[in-house]
Each structure stands twice: as structure tokens, then as C-alpha cells.
């Protein structure tokens, strides 16, 4: 698969729900996320493998990964 054809996932963050606990940031296997200010933000979308561990471990219904 060429770089150009590689489809990037879409990470949706609900800024109203995120409490900035940083569980998703600390346990992301490929370091996609970071804490920016008080809530989570996407740092490196290309590294995302769609494993959904951030969604599964988020206690606040604040992050979801769409294909």
C-alpha cells in the first residue's frame, strides 16, 4: 500500500467530556495522543493503528476512533 493511498483514521474527541486524566495518552501503544492544555489532543495521526485501546480505556466516553 502506498503512502498516498493509506487512509488515515479519524479520532473524535469530545472536549466537553474529556477530563484530561491522560489514561489514553499513557497507554497508547504508538504515542498518537498528547495532553494539550487540559484535554487530550491528537499528536501523530499517521501512527494510529486503530487498536481502539484509547476508546476502551477512556472512562469518560470522550474519545472514539473511526476508520
Amino acid at each position: 500500500m502506498t503512502e498516498a493511498a493509506k487512509k488515515l483514521p479519524r479520532i473524535e474527541i469530545n472536549a466537553k467530556f474529556c477530563k484530561g486524566c491522560s489514561i489514553c495518552v499513557d497507554f497508547c501503544p504508538t504515542n498518537v495522543l498528547e495532553i494539550r492544555g487540559t484535554i487530550v489532543a491528537v499528536k501523530d495521526l499517521e501512527a494510529c493503528t486503530r487498536c481502539q485501546l484509547c476508546d476502551l480505556r477512556c472512562p469518560d466516553f470522550a474519545i472514539q476512533v473511526f476508520d
Binding site: 477530563k19 484530561g20 486524566c21 491522560s22 489514561i23 476502551l56 480505556r57 477512556c58 472512562p59 469518560d60 466516553f61
Partner: peptide, 10 residues
Amino acid sequence: PGCGHGIILK
């Protein structure tokens, strides 16, 4: 923030 109860609920 960080409480595991939300993870269990999900």
C-alpha cells in the same frame, strides 16, 4: 478524572 468506574461502565 482517571476514576476506573467509567471504564467498567463501558
